[in-house]
Amino acid sequence: MNPDQALAGRRILLVEDDFIIADDVAAAFGSAGAEVVGPAATPRKALELIKQTERLDGAMLDINLQGDLVYAVVDALQARGVPVIFASGYDRSAIPERYADIPFCEKPVDRARCAKDLFR
């Protein structure tokens, strides 16, 4: 599937603490026809956004947010049945076992291309 088509019309939460990357990815998602919720730089902001947003089709999450780990956000999203993908400079092996099934997109590959894994 063409990634642009996969993302068109989707509402995607972006959690990323680096502004430069967040800005870039948000722009890429936007041009692919997705609606970006966020970006959020901290778990707290991400959780607020989840609470405030009625419809979420997916979420792309950085793991280490200035030292805070994103897993509380994963739990909140999974509780709502929202598909999640990690995007991180972390090594895959650093992720706790209970989150091991979550798709993983290594920085700094094309995030928009990665995001289609959310909707397979």
Partner: peptide, 10 residues
């Protein structure tokens, strides 16, 4: 200082 409390709002 690092906020640090963020995750606890979960």
């Amino acid at each position: 200082d690092r906020p640090g409390q963020d995750g606890r709002h979960a």
